[in-house]
């Protein structure tokens, strides 16, 4: 590969395209373009209604600037009380149920039948979102925070057990091996080799889920499962945008506080 003076080099260069086959590349571009045009076209907008609604939008922005905490304070307090207690209770119960299911769903320590059952529970819990589960639980348990509690606990299981199982499957096998080599039984392996490795992350995930559960508790009230969401829904129905803004500001503040403190706790744990 000697570079003699006579060697001539190309004077053009184009970057190799991401999709190598030209027809496929163009088909993808064209398909995306057509889909975009058609779906934008299918969105029907009633501009008269939007124009009329702008006035409400302005009132809502005003509500944010001057939120009204006082006139619905009682309702807000009850809603918050329900949301917060629902969040704590469902996280605790959810974590307690998630741990055995998570262990059962880890392929490296669970026997196959248990693994299959636990994975099925996780899949069931993950495939339905909170709001749909809440609709069903409200129909079963009646309106109120208990239905919300059930919903959030159920959702926590899918989230936490899955991540826990993945964590256990990812653990350093040599440590488990070392404990197994001492002749330890199954429980001892879980206790000495697995628990120390996954415990910090389990606590971190639980705190994260606490955070999520609070946010969700603000939503499921819309379908009657109690909490601040119900209060918010009522405020919106009554066109009390300044109260609604007050509730939203409270939600944002609590979420911020929760995020900040859980980050702090996680740092402190490590």
């Amino acid at each position: 590969m000697s570079a003699s003076a006579a060697t001539s080099y190309p004077r053009t260069w184009t970057r190799p395209p991401f999709v190598k086959r030209a027809w496929l590349r163009w088909a993808l571009y064209l398909g995306a373009l057509v889909y975009l045009i058609v779906s934008v076209g299918s969105v029907e907008v009633n501009w008269v209604r939007v124009w009329e609604g702008l006035d409400r939008g302005v009132r809502f922005v005003q509500g944010f600037l001057v939120p009204d905490f006082t006139s619905r304070w009682e309702d807000i307090l009850i809603g918050m009380e329900e949301s917060l207690t629902m969040t704590v209770a469902s996280t605790v119960v959810g974590v307690l149920i998630s741990v055995p299911i998570g262990i059962g769903a880890a392929r490296n320590i669970a026997p196959l039948p248990i693994y299959a059952i636990c994975r099925a529970i996780i899949a069931l819990s993950r495939s339905f979102q909170e709001i749909i589960v809440a609709i069903l639980f409200v129909a079963m348990f009646g309106f109120g925070p208990l239905a919300g509690f059930m919903t959030l606990s159920f959702a926590t299981i899918g989230f936490l057990a899955k991540l826990l199982a993945e964590d256990i499957e990812d653990i350093d096998e040599s440590q488990a091996e070392a404990v197994r080599a001492t002749g330890a039984g199954w429980w001892q392996i879980v206790n000495y080799a697995i628990q120390p490795q996954v415990m910090p992350r389990l606590i971190g995930l639980s705190l994260y889920r606490l955070d999520i559960n609070f946010r969700e508790s603000a939503v499921i009230g819309i379908v009657g499962a109690g909490g601040i969401g119900a209060t918010l829904n009522t405020a919106m129905d009554r066109y009390e945008y300044d109260s609604a803004a007050a509730i939203l500001i409270l939600i944002i503040l609590i979420v911020m506080a929760a995020e900040y403190s859980s980050g702090y706790v996680r740092k402190w744990l490590q």
């Binding site: 299918s42 969105v43 029907e44 907008v45 009633n46 209604r49 939007v50 009329e52 609604g53 702008l54 409400r56 939008g57 809502f60 709001i131 946010r215 969700e216 603000a218 939503v219 819309i222 969401g229 918010l232 829904n233 919106m236 066109y239 609604a244 939203l248 939600i251 944002i252 979420v255 911020m256």
Partner: peptide, 19 residues
């Protein structure tokens, strides 16, 4: 912090129901 369902609740009130 605000779930999309709550955003939808607000926006339906402001720009009207629909996609």
């Amino acid at each position: 912090s605000i779930n999309s369902l709550i955003w939808a609740l607000l926006l339906v009130a402001i720009i009207g129901p629909g996609v």
